[in-house]
Design a binder for these strands. Structure first.
Length: 369
RNA sequence: UACUAAGUAGCUCAGUGGUAGAGCAGUUGACUGUUAAUCAAUUGGUCAUAGGUUCAAAUCCUAUCUUGGUCUCCA
């Protein structure tokens, strides 16, 4: 018996015609009728489910009719092409075996759930379309990031996660300690005595791998970090996570133009890669999460990223036929509303704003001459 | 941090002062090709919590808790 995953069959179904296969997966729906029924089976290898037809002649037909959504099943059957149906092929069952039953109160239904509800059933939400799509795309994105840099000869630097260093302009840090918080040791000046802590000094979770990457760039030339970073900002927005992954390339002997070209190429490469490798998932996002997403991404792939001097950006904003909440004048740091106007309304494309006043940037920035 | 909206059946929601509701899910049945199948029946309720107003509160008022959105911060 040939064991296959559903991704294989979908990608090559014509070559599987009339073959007897064994598939395993979880029921997404079960539409039982009097003399036959249809099971939708998802095995996690692919976004789409596969349709299995079962008929009255199966000895456990009555039981199969009652298999609930969520049940784990093993099916042996033949691949039939169905060119006139909604799906290009289906499996006609010779055997349907219940591997694991699913309780009556299984909470995931074949319908839309809110994300707030899915958070309460966190152990089951990877089985939903939304999480299936998100985490496969996330996995592909990570692979695309590595592929992009590795193909260009960059060295992947693993910056430490526990560190004693801070970074430029980063936010609040999570402390890492083995000290007993109910009985913190004090030194003679009545300050916390970090000499008794695990590392003998105050440490925290990294807010950025930048400093390590810079050090390595001065030896390996082109390097990047890609890993988790942590910030203890009390920001209640969907954009701000306490733990998030960050890419930080550092390139020696490069100028600002090299840097911008690299960033533009990277963003385009990743988008291209994901659209190509996860068309079903991206289609799902386009339809149910953000209408017009694919159109926006394809437009972005074709457009040149704009480059705009800070002073020029200020002039554009001053002339904007629009009232900003934060007043625009030379010397300010751009707020989200200003950035949104530049990208969404003025340039209608991604834009680099360069040559900021040195007063609002960190000390280690290169000064234009 | 501030502002704002919401919390009613397992889920998604309707119900703005007078008997607690629908669809889905579950259960039982019908159905010869379904596509989140359809049809019939049926189980299921501390209306977030506490207090107040009223003859009468899911509905009005106050406080608290929880969640969403926006802002701030930041990336």
């Amino acid at each position: 018996m040939k064991k296959v995953v559903i991704r294989q069959i979908y990608r090559d179904f014509k070559n599987y015609e009339n073959q007897v296969l064994e598939i395993t997966g979880w029921a997404r729906s079960n539409r039982a009728q009097k003399q036959f029924g249809f099971l939708m089976i998802n095995d996690g290898s692919f976004f789409e489910s596969i349709q299995v037809v079962y008929e009255e002649n199966l000895e456990n037909f009555k039981e199969i009719q009652k298999y609930r959504v969520g049940s784990a099943l093993k099916i042996i059957g033949t691949v039939n092409l169905t060119p006139n149906a909604k799906q290009p092929f289906e499996i006609k069952a010779q055997e349907v075996i219940l591997v694991g039953d699913c309780p009556e109160d299984y909470p995931i239904q074949p319908k839309r759930h809110t994300r707030e509800f899915l958070r309460e059933v966190a152990h089951l939400r990877p089985r939903t379309n939304l999480f299936s799509a998100v985490f496969r795309v996330r996995s592909l994105t990570a692979h695309a990031i590595h592929t992009f840099f590795q193909d260009r000869g960059f060295v992947y630097v693993h910056a430490p996660i526990i560190t004693a260093s801070d970074a430029e302009g980063a936010g609040e840090m999570f402390r890492v300690t083995t000290l007993d918080l109910h009985n913190v040791p004090k030194n003679e000046e009545k300050n916390i005595d970090y000499k008794q802590d695990f590392f003998g000094k105050s440490t925290n979770l990294t807010v950025s791998g930048q400093l390590e990457a810079e050090v390595f760039a001065l030896a390996f030339r082109d390097v990047y970090t890609f890993g988790p970073t942590f910030r203890a900002e009390l920001s209640n927005t969907y954009k701000h996570a306490a733990e998030f992954w960050m890419i930080e390339p550092e390139i020696a002997f490069a100028d600002l133009l090299d840097d911008m070209n690299l960033a533009e190429d990277m963003v385009k490469f990743i988008i291209q890669y994901v659209i190509e490798k996860a068309p079903e998932e991206m289609q799902f996002f386009d339809e149910f999460v953000q209408k017009g997403l694919l159109n926006r991404l394809n437009t972005l792939l074709k457009s040149k990223f704009h480059r705009c001097d800070y002073s020029e950006a200020i002039e554009i904003l001053k002339k904007a036929p629009k009232q900003f909440e934060n007043k625009v004048e030379w010397g300010i740091d751009l707020a989200s509303e200003h950035e949104r106007y530049l990208t969404d309304e003025y340039f209608k494309a991604p834009v680099f704003v360069i040559n900021y006043p040195k007063e609002i940037k960190a000390i280690n920035w290169w000064i234009s001459t």
